[in-house]
Each structure stands twice: as C-alpha cells, then as structure tokens.
Simulated assay, not measured.
Amino acid sequence: MNKNSKIYVAGSHGLVGSAIVRNLKAKGYTNILEKNHRELDLMDQLAVRSFFEAEKPAYVVLAAAKVGGIGANKAYPADFIYENMEIQNNVIKAAHDFKVTKLLFLGSSCIYPKMCPQPIKEEYLLSGYLEPTNEGYAIAKISGLKMCQFFKREYGDNFISCMPTNLYGPNDNYDLNNSHVMPALIRKFHEAVVNNEPSVEVWGSGKPLREFLYVDDMADACVFLLENYDGEEHVNVGTGKELTIGQLAEMVKKVVGFKGELKFNTEKPDGTMRKLLDVSKLEATGWKYKVELEDGVKMAYKWFQENYKN
C-alpha cells in the first residue's frame, strides 16, 4: 500500500471504522474516503455502484454493519441478517466489478458454533450449531466471509477477512437497549454513581467467559493485515485472554468508582458460556495486542465521560 493509495473505510463513523481511520492517518496514509450513512446508504446497490465507479478506491475496509448486544440480536434477527447481507453483497460485488486492489472484510467471533472447543481456531467454522440469540447476525457474517473466499477462489480477487473478539473503546454504542456488555456496564455504573444508586443490575449469571480487545488495537491489526496478509482463510483477532462477566463488572465498577452492590439478573440470557479465540495464527504473522484490559477500560470510560451528554 502506498501512502497516497485511495482507501475507502466503509463504516468510518462507527466504533471500528473510526479507529481504522485514526490508525491509517497515524501511519501516514493521506487519501482516505469517509462517507456517513446520509452520504452513502450501503443498502442502496445503485448508490454503492455509482460511488465505486466515481471514486475507484484501491483498497476497501468493510467495517460497516448493523451491530448490537444480545438483547438486540435476539429481538431483531430478521433485521440483522437482511441489513448485513445487503451491505456486504453490495460492497463486495462492487469491489470486484470495479477492480479494487484489496478488500478487508470484518466479521465477528459469533460466527463460531455455540459448543466450540476452546480456544477457538479458525478451522472450527461451520463445525456445529450457532448460538441461537445471535444466529441472524452470525449467518450474515459467515456469508460475507465466504463471499470473500469465493471471489478470491473464482476470480483471484485479493479479498481477505478477519474475525475480531468483543471490541470496546471510543465511539462505542452506549444505548442500554442495544449496546454490548462493556459499554452497557460503563454507562450503568456511571449513572449509578451520579444518581447515588445502591446497586447495579448485570444481565445474566455473571459466569460466562469473554475476551475483550481495545478497538485501537483492532484497528492496528486491520491495517497490519492489509499490509501483510493475502491468505484465503480468515484470521482471528483478539488477546487470547478471558475473564468472567462478573469479573468484568467488578473491574468496571472499580474504574468508575461505584461503591454499591452488583445484582445479577438470571432471568436475562447468558449467551454462549465461553468464547475465547485462538490468535496464534495472527501472532505468527508478527502482530500482537498492546492494550491490557484495565487500561483499556480506563480509556473507554474517559472517552465516555467526555462525550456522555451526546
């Protein structure tokens, strides 16, 4: 990649896309295309094709997606599968038709079977049943990953994919109805401190194990893969470390400074009980995460405090 190569980051205003733009600029890339949803609706096939025809990006990072936590995925499975597949189909096909040099597709660790051996290797994909609560989103992401593989196999397109673990950091979604567990906990504990509440509710039993990666580390891995990886198989991106949701809640509680009680609501779903990625393939290519979890939570909470009113 030349520093002046035209790079289109789809989803550049979201959690991952904005971090990728920051990383590219920090590395000296100067020709980055950013479009918000109002400027370019990625579900509009004609608009996407017109954009690619006019701009002719050399590189594409497909970080745009409809995303949400366990509650949103369970409530809106049709929306999650339809909107994500529409976005992927339009962007990947346009990238092929307008001869993009390289495309990076971002998926999610929820593509793996619910009862997967741990830690999860890339080859475990499609080896069992998915977690029902996010099946719609997972099937869409599997389809995007397979599209990239098949376009590479049939046409020789340099389309690659990576599958991140749970991400958090600046520009996360803090809507309690649709957010993931990390931003939900940060907001809940912050508001409990502000309102002097005696307790905070945590969804589920607190027993599921999860892995978390600071989003700027994820962005660094994405740019590294764009620069260094051309394989057909997707690549896991994570830390290789895990903790329980209960331990995470205690960590966020400490960072925010909440002194009250944790109440686990076992009527809410736990989701998959364990989901740890095997990141040995990525580490063998020369990349490893930098931000430890508690440091990342502190940075995420600082960003939240600065942007809470918005």
Rank of each mutant, 00 (worst) to 15 (best):
M1H: 11
N2F: 09
K3F: 08
N4T: 14
S5T: 11
K6A: 13
Y8H: 14
A10E: 05
H13Q: 14
L15F: 02
G17Q: 02
A19V: 02
I20T: 03
I20C: 10
R22Y: 10
R22F: 10
A26K: 11
A26M: 12
K27V: 08
T30H: 10
T30N: 15
E34Y: 05
K35N: 11
N36K: 08
H37R: 15
R38Q: 12
E39M: 08
D41A: 12
D41M: 05
L42Q: 05
R49W: 09
S50V: 06
F51Y: 07
K56Y: 09
Y59R: 06
V60Y: 02
G71M: 12
G71Y: 07
Y76C: 10
N89F: 12
N90I: 02
I92Y: 01
D97V: 05
D97K: 03
V100H: 03
L103D: 05
L106V: 07
L106N: 01
S109T: 03
C110D: 05
I111S: 05
P119T: 06
I120E: 00
Y124G: 06
Y124T: 03
Y124M: 13
E131G: 02
A140F: 00
A140P: 00
G144H: 00
K146H: 13
C148F: 03
F150H: 12
F151D: 08
K152P: 05
E154S: 15
I160A: 09
S161F: 00
C162V: 06
M163V: 12
Y168D: 03
Y168I: 03
P183G: 12
I186S: 06
K188S: 15
E191P: 04
V193K: 11
V194K: 15
N195P: 03
N195A: 14
N195H: 14
P198L: 07
S199T: 12
L213H: 02
Y214V: 03
V215T: 06
V215S: 08
D216M: 13
D217H: 07
D217I: 04
A221W: 00
C222T: 02
V223Q: 05
F224A: 10
D230A: 14
G231R: 00
H234E: 11
V235Y: 00
V237E: 01
G238M: 07
G238C: 04
K241F: 11
K241A: 15
I245R: 03
K253T: 01
K253N: 06
V256C: 09
V256P: 01
G257D: 12
T266M: 15
G271S: 11
L276H: 01
L282T: 01
G286Q: 09
K290W: 08
K298T: 08
K298I: 13
M299T: 09
Q305N: 15
E306P: 05
N310Y: 12
